[in-house]
Simulated assay, not measured.
Amino acid sequence: MTRPQSDSDPQNAGIDLDRLIACPGCDAVYTAPRVEQHERAYCARCHHVLIAPRRKAGKQLIALALTVLILIVAASVFPFLAIDAGGLHHGASILQTAFAFTGALSVLSVAVLMFIVIIPMLRLVLLIYVLAPIIRDRPPARWARPAFRLSEALLPWSMAEIFALGCAVALVKIGDMAHVVFGPAAWMFAVLVVIVVVTDNLMCRYSIWKSLEN
């Protein structure tokens, strides 16, 4: 474990700005230390992980991103759940549910598709675009920096895993009123949530930015 040296120290006056790193949790600024493979640099104030390089992390991130892409596409098409109540049976996929809104509620169709399908897929495609040349020891792609910046900007709007958790909470509440059967897409979203968490923990954004600078 490595603790970065705070840039507020007197001996850090005139430090090279390219060596500074800001904590995304508390905005503390540090001089980026040299971190070896499988070591981590933490923020001294809020203990947020700042640097966590890992060997072959790029290949693993691409593999996970491709897996999530496949899961999102499949989960959008296959039945998500089916409900039996009062002798009636109804099942639907995410796409069927999104296009079920009409009239003034049609904006919800756009929101569902954007936040649950399109934006998460766009983020993953951008990440693969950025990392593919890096893992092959080639110069970064032409638009790699703005692509990675856009990928990070879209992170708060990528809500595929939030949708899965929200559905789980809603299904618990209606479980007493109807018989709920989870479809293949529900289990795909469950796996997707786990992979998204693993991907986020595996990604070292500082290392990616440094690779793009080189």
Rank of each mutant, 00 (worst) to 15 (best):
L113D: 02
Q96A: 11
F148R: 11
L131K: 08
F101A: 08
T97Q: 07
F148Q: 09
I128N: 09
L88M: 11
V125N: 06
S106N: 11
D84W: 14
A98E: 03
V107D: 01
P133K: 09
P140E: 09
M121Y: 00
A144T: 03
L69S: 15
L69T: 09
L150M: 13
W143T: 12
I62K: 01
P79H: 07
T97V: 13
I134G: 04
L71I: 12
G91T: 00
L64Y: 08
D84N: 12
Y129L: 05
R138E: 15
D84A: 12
A57S: 15
D137A: 11
Q60G: 12
V117T: 14
G103V: 09
A92G: 01
P120V: 01
R142E: 14
V110A: 10
I116V: 15
I83C: 02
R123N: 09
R142D: 11
I94K: 04
A74Q: 07
P140W: 07
K56R: 14
R136K: 15
V107M: 08
L124I: 04
A104P: 02
R123V: 02
L105C: 02
S106V: 10
L69Q: 12
V130M: 05
S109N: 15
A132T: 06
P120K: 02
D137E: 09
S106T: 05
A153Y: 06
P133Q: 09
A85K: 14
V77A: 10
R142F: 12
I94C: 04
A75T: 03
F115N: 01
G87A: 05
L105K: 09
M114T: 13
V110Q: 05
L126M: 12
Q96W: 01
L127P: 03
M114N: 01
M121E: 06
G103W: 11
S76Y: 11
S151L: 00
V68S: 14
A85R: 15
I83P: 05
I135R: 10
D84T: 14
T67A: 15
S106C: 03
E152Y: 01
L105V: 00
A144D: 03
A63T: 01
A85E: 02
I135T: 13
H90K: 11
V125D: 02
P139D: 07
L122W: 03
